[in-house]
Design a protein around this nucleic acid. Sequence first.
DNA 1: CTACGCTACCCAAACGATTGGGTAACTGCG
DNA 2: CGCAGTTACCCAATCGTTTGGGTAGCGTAG
Lengths: 354, 354
Amino acid sequence: MRAEGTGRQPITLKDLAAELGIHPSTVSRVLHSTSEIARGAASSATAERVRKLARERGYSPDPGAASLRTRRTKAFGVIVPRLSDLVLATMYEGVEEAAAEARYSTFVMNSHDNPEEQRRKAEIMLARRVDGLILGDIHAGSDLVHELQARSIPFVLMSRRYPGFPSSTCDDVVGGELVADHLWDTGHRAVAVIAGEPFASTALDRTSGFRDRWLDLGGRISDADIVWSRFDTEGGREAAEALLDRRGGIPTAVFAVNDFAAIGAMGAIRSRGLTVGQDIAVVGFNDTSLAAQLPIPLSSVRSPMLEIGRRAVELLRRVIAGEQVESLRLKPELFIRESSAAVAAAAARDALVG
Amino acid sequence: MRAEGTGRQPITLKDLAAELGIHPSTVSRVLHSTSEIARGAASSATAERVRKLARERGYSPDPGAASLRTRRTKAFGVIVPRLSDLVLATMYEGVEEAAAEARYSTFVMNSHDNPEEQRRKAEIMLARRVDGLILGDIHAGSDLVHELQARSIPFVLMSRRYPGFPSSTCDDVVGGELVADHLWDTGHRAVAVIAGEPFASTALDRTSGFRDRWLDLGGRISDADIVWSRFDTEGGREAAEALLDRRGGIPTAVFAVNDFAAIGAMGAIRSRGLTVGQDIAVVGFNDTSLAAQLPIPLSSVRSPMLEIGRRAVELLRRVIAGEQVESLRLKPELFIRESSAAVAAAAARDALVG
DNA sequence: CTACGCTACCCAAACGATTGGGTAACTGCG
DNA sequence: CGCAGTTACCCAATCGTTTGGGTAGCGTAG
C-alpha cells in the first residue's frame, strides 16, 4: 500500500475514466465538446456523470499532453520594450484580459528595444511553441517581421506599426494633428517637438502628424524644432534642455510625444525659472493616469491603450485562424489641461512671430 | 509526393537520430547532459556529431513533450496587482531576467488586488502546471498562502511579506525609519503619513517603521495623522486633500509610502497654493525613475526593485529544490531632494510644536 | 427477415522526450 | 584462453490527451 504522500499529482483523464468504468476517450470527448462533438460521443446521462466527477475531482487537462497531440499550446508570446513603461504595461493588461477570455495564456518578455534581444526573446517564445507572437517593440525597418513571415509564424504588431503587417495601434498621426490644432488655436506660433525614438512608428507618426498639420495651418517649423529623445523622463528633460539652450529663441509650446518625456520637459522648464502653462505650454501623449494628477495637470492625447492590447489579441487569433486581417488604428482624443490651457503670452508671440 | 508546405514543423529528436543513424535516446542523452550524464552515453565523436547537427537544424526540444515525461514545466507563474504599477513591473523585470538565466519561462497575470481574482489567476497558473508561483500581491491575513501550502505547491512572496512564509521584499520598516529620522532632523514636528492600502505589508511596515521611530525620537503622531489610501496618484491626492482640509492645523511634512501617491499629494498641495519643499515637505517611496526628474524633485526611499525580483526567483528555485529558505529583506536607501531638503519653516514649527 | 442506420461506446495509435535497463563488442588481466 | 569491466550504444515503456476508426446492440423500413 503506497502512501498517498502530500504532493498529490493532478487527476488525469484515465483516473476519471477508471472511476466511471468507461474509456478515457469517452471522457475526453465529453469534456471538451461544445456539445456538437459530444453529440454522439456519449449519452446525456453519461455525459452528466462525467462532467460531475470532473468538477468534483477538480480535473484540469494537462496542457503539455494536450499540445503534444494537438500541436497547439494555447499560449501567446508578447514582447515589449519594457513593462516598466506604463504604456506597454497597460496594453499588456488588455492583452492578458482578452487572452484569458479566449483561454489563452501569455508569456511576456522585455526586449529593451534592443534588436538582438528582440530576436533572442522571440526565439525563446518559439522554443516554447507559442501559437503566435504579439510584438510591441518593432523597429522601423526591422527585418524580424520578414523573417517571421518567411517562417510563417503567426504574429501581429502592437503599439507600433510596420507597413504591410497587421497591427493594433493608436492613430498616432491623428494624435499629432490634434495637438497641432490645439496649439495653433491657442495662439502659439513658435513650437517644438520632443519626438521620441526615431525607430518607433509611434514617435514618427505623432511627429509627422503634428508637423504636417502645422505646415497646413500656415505655421513654420524647422528640423531644429524637432528633437529626438528617449521616451522616459530623463530623455524628455535632456531634450527640453537642448531646446531651451539653443540660440534663436525658445518655443512657446512643446509637444512631447510621450507623457513621461513631457514630465521631464516640465522639470527642465521649471529649472529655468519658467512656468509651465504660463511661459511655455506643454502637451504630452497617452494620457497616462499621472497626467491629470500632476501638480500642473498635463494636457495629453489619450490613446486607448487597453483596447489596443485587446484588439491585438483579436487580430492574432484571426491570423492564426488563417484570415486575412487589416491593421487597426484606434482614434485618440485630446484632453486639455492647465499645462497648455492658456492662450500664448502676447509678448512671446509677438517677439517670435514677427 | 507531398508538398513540403510553408509551415515546416520543428525538428524532433527522432529526426536527428534518423539522420545520424543512431537511436533517439542517445541523441537525448548527449543533448541534455551536463557532460556527466553524457559520459558513458556516447563517444565524444558521436556526441560532437549530434551537437553539430542539432545546431545546424536549429533543434529545440518540445517543452510539452519534455514536461509530460519529467513532470516539470520549467515555468513559473507570477501574480501581481497590476503591471501598470511601475514598482511591480520593475520587480517583474528582475524576475524575467533571473528566470531566463535559469532557463525558466514566466507567465504573469494581474490580480488587481482582488482576492477572488488572485485565486482565479493562481488556479489558471496551476492548470498550466507551473513549477511554482511568485505572488506579488498577497494580502495581510489572506488564506491563499495556507491553501497553497496545504496543497504543497511551491511558492514565494515578492514585494509584500507574510509572516511564516518565504518572501523577497524591501526592508520597509527600515525605510520608514529613514524617513522619520530625516524629517526629524530637518526640524519637522507636525507630520502625517499617506499610508497606502492597509492590506499590503509594504504599507503597514513603512508606516509602522516611521511611526515607531517618530515616537522613539520624542515626536508626536496620532491616528488622525495617518491616512490610508490607494497606491496611485489619485489616491495620494485624495489623502492629501483630507489632510489639508482637516481642522487643527496642517502638517509641515508628509510621508507618502509610494511615489505615485506622493505625486498626487504634491498636486493637492499646489492646488492649495502651497509650495512643496517650502511650505510642506513631501517624501515618497521606491525612488522610481520619475522621482528625481519631477519639476520639484521628490525625496524618496529607494528600494532595490529589480533585485527583489531576482531574489524571488532564487528563493523559489530553492523552495522547489526542497530547501528550507529564509525570507529576505533588502536594505533601502533614502535620497533627499528638493521636496524635503529645506529645514522646516520656523513659523510653522513654532506654531505647531508649542 | 434482412439490411441499414443510429447510438454509445471502446480501441489503439499517435505526439516527442526521457530514462531504467539491457547487450554486443572490445580491452585488459591473470 | 576465460572472465570481468568498460564503452557505446539500443530498446521500450511511459507521461496524458486526442482522434480516426472500429463495433455491438438496437430499432426500423422495405
